[in-house]
């Protein structure tokens, strides 16, 4: 078995008195795509945000157990959250580019991390945009505002922005749910391409999307990780009846 990139051991998360995640045990190998599926409020997004501790921003969050990246517990006291977030790129449901130029959006992560070298920043911006399959569409308008491009392009810009800080993991929270089918297909193809260089975890409400892009699928329900297996197994022969009911659309 190859080395684990991401792991959770007996992980619990509470919003005040409410337990949002119950004793989660989860593993992901490097260069794989894992899809989190489950009905709204099942905890999949919460779990996703545990890997870069975005849950810390919410008042009253408490955790027990471990989530590790490359074997290091991200909830350890010695961890600097800002440093952690540089290793873990994140893409959100709604494209959220900054009201800056396209170039500055991608350069932002480097700038806030203290990179001053202009040529390095330029090279990184170009390579990130290329990696995000956006370069051809925006190369002539890098100085233009990021708010002027289409929603699908904005989302790919957000992916480029995340890639620029050279993370090893990319978390995606329903990255295509606000996009039209063509843009969605582009994002999905992109995600599939990015697998070569990154470990990707993607939350999706769209079952077909999970099938199309992921290697492994994890089904969450009411804060439990019900079943996690190869996507082909989940989609053809799930072990758990709840998983089967969910993916066949019989509940949720």
């Amino acid at each position: 078995m190859s080395k684990l990139k991401v792991e959770a051991r007996d992980f619990n998360l509470y919003y005040g008195d409410f337990q949002a995640l119950k004793n989660i045990n989860f593993q992901a190998e490097p260069n794989t795509i894992t899809a989190f599926i489950g009905p709204s409020g099942c905890g999949k997004s919460t779990f996703l945000r545990s890997f870069n501790r975005m849950n810390d921003l919410i008042v009253g969050v408490r955790t027990t157990g471990e989530t590790t990246i490359d074997g290091v517990n991200v909830y350890d006291k010695s961890i600097n959250v800002d440093e952690l977030r540089k290793q873990v790129g994140m893409v959100f449901q709604k494209p959220n580019p900054f009201p800056k130029s396209i170039f500055e959006n991608v350069a932002y992560g480097l700038r806030v991390n203290g990179v001053k070298d202009k040529t390095f920043i330029e090279e990184k911006v170009v390579s990130s945009l290329k990696q995000a399959a956006l370069w051809e569409e925006v190369k002539d308008k890098l100085k233009k505002s990021a708010l002027a491009i289409s929603g699908g392009q904005q989302q790919r810009l957000c992916i480029a922005r995340a890639l620029a800080i050279s993370p090893s993991i990319i978390l995606m929270d329903e990255p295509a749910s606000a996009l039209d089918p063509i843009s969605t297909a582009k994002i999905e193809d992109l995600v599939y391409e990015l697998k070569k260089d990154y470990t990707i975890i993607i939350v999706t409400h769209n079952m077909q999307q999970a099938g199309r892009v992921s290697d492994r699928t994890a089904f969450f329900y009411m804060g439990d990780l019900v079943e996690c297996d190869d996507t082909t197994t989940i989609f053809t022969n799930p072990k758990n009846i709840q998983t089967q009911n969910y993916i066949t659309g019989r509940f949720g």
Partner: peptide, 9 residues
């Protein structure tokens, strides 16, 4: 075939 039908519809 089964996998393609299940995963990609």
């Amino acid at each position: 075939c089964e996998n393609i039908l299940a995963l990609f519809n």
